[in-house]
């Protein structure tokens, strides 16, 4: 277990903070508790800090990627209470007391999850930047629907963009992870 400490996330680094519509007003810093992959963290955040920044910069789990930062690409997908959501357009203060799973929480020690193994086997990774998001979306799909069709998988992964055009291998990997017959393992 890591020790749970209070971490201040002060993005202004001592410089003047640009103040928004309320002239002269300063927003309150809040103390929130997040359970990330089974470990509780207490973090002090301003309301304008996004969940992905807390996960990456404060907690230090850099598996979750921040890419478009406007809710388009899906690279920052994490599971909040089992639902795949975009950490780059979720305020950290909104996640107080919530259970969050990131890509680091999939493997148990050295043992990769079924979805991760299937991604490896199908070669569903090229540059790997979209992979954490793809894995989280796929994990959420398989938890809700253990035997998805190809169409179900396409729909579940439509919010995750891959610029290396690896979609076929990725869909095959999810099918393989679901234990369905119609995909041949490539390397096993």
């Amino acid at each position: 277990m890591h020790e749970t400490g209070v971490v201040m996330l002060d993005v202004s680094k001592g410089k003047d903070v640009r103040v928004g519509a309320v002239a002269g007003a300063q927003s309150r810093t809040r103390l929130i508790s997040l359970c990330v992959n089974g470990e509780w963290h207490e973090v002090a955040v301003k309301p304008r800090i996004m969940l992905v920044e807390v996960i990456r910069d404060t907690i230090g789990l850099t598996g979750t990627k921040a890419s478009c930062e406007s809710g388009i690409c899906g690279a920052c997908t994490v599971l909040i209470e089992g639902r795949p959501v975009l950490a780059c357009i979720t305020l950290a203060v909104e996640c107080d007391g919530k259970q969050i799973r990131t890509v680091e929480g999939l493997a148990e020690g050295e043992k990769l999850s079924v979805v991760q193994e299937a991604f490896l086997d199908q070669g569903a990774v090229q540059c790997g930047f979209c992979t954490p998001g793809m894995l989280m979306s796929a994990t959420a799909l398989l938890e809700r629907n253990p035997k998805p069709t190809r169409q179900d998988i396409n729909k579940a992964l439509e919010g995750n963009l891959c610029r290396c055009t690896g979609y076929n291998a990725i869909v095959d990997a999810v099918l393989q992870a679901s234990g369905q017959e119609n995909v041949k393992p490539v390397m096993k």
């Binding site: 927003s27 309150r28 809040r30 304008r48």
Partner: peptide, 9 residues
Amino acid sequence: MILFDFDYE
């Protein structure tokens, strides 16, 4: 991060 400051209730 959002580039201006705002409060939250």
